[in-house]
Design a protein around this nucleic acid. Structure first.
Length: 189
DNA sequence: ACCGTGATAATCT
DNA sequence: GATTATCACGGTG
């Protein structure tokens, strides 16, 4: 058997900015009902802690955000605007609350429909709140595999999307993407 | 540009 | 328990 390529918990046990940069070029996999769906991550956003006014955890520990305060390497999935799910990977040691939103992947296997944008991505993978707080490091059906990564010179950063309410935090360049990819959200087809 | 949609959390009675 | 404001989006015009 080949060695396990599943990314381990130590990878996530770091500041969200580092994890967001390094998740680019890795492979997000969801296995359910005998189906394997996989895509290469091409766009992420970091939500860095309770002091980050764009981070849900800045409102304090609530039932929804509880998972963000838990151990790293778990999923944080929530419903927004009544119809769209967003998938995040929890980062930082337990007790701190930070996460990386996966905004787009390049389809690799088993994915139907568009995967550019956090809501469309979740729809294509079949991700929903049922996956909230799932462990990404223990074979629970959602995980990230080591891919080719994205070299620094192919990486771009800019302000996060949809967080204009967050005052000075709205402008911080906490969104990352692969400039070579045509699957990054917010561009014309 | 406009708005659907329903969970969430805060703020009431 | 009820009401209200808000929202890490996406489809349509």
């Amino acid at each position: 058997m080949p060695e396990s390529r599943v990314i381990a918990r130590t990878f996530y046990n770091r500041p969200a900015l580092e994890v967001a940069r390094e998740l680019l070029g890795q492979r997000l996999v969801v296995s359910a009902g005998g189906q394997r769906r996989a895509g290469i991550i091409v766009e992420t956003e970091a939500y860095v802690g309770t002091h980050d006014l764009a981070c849900h955890a800045s409102k304090g520990r609530t039932p929804r955000t509880e998972g963000m305060f838990g151990p790293p390497g778990h999923a944080y999935v929530y419903l927004v605007y009544g119809m769209h799910h967003c998938f995040n990977a929890v980062t930082c040691p337990e007790g701190e609350a930070a996460a990386v939103l996966v905004r787009a992947v390049a389809p690799d296997a088993g994915l139907e429909g568009r995967t550019d944008g956090p809501g469309r991505l979740c729809r294509a993978y079949g991700l929903s709140r049922a996956h909230d707080r799932l462990d990404l490091c223990s074979g629970s059906g959602v995980w990230v595999e080591v891919g080719e990564g994205v070299a620094r010179r192919h990486r771009r950063c800019g302000p996060r999307v949809g967080v204009d309410y967050a005052g000075p935090w709205a402008a911080k360049p906490y969104r990352f993407w692969d400039v070579r990819s045509r699957w990054v959200s917010g561009r014309r087809a």
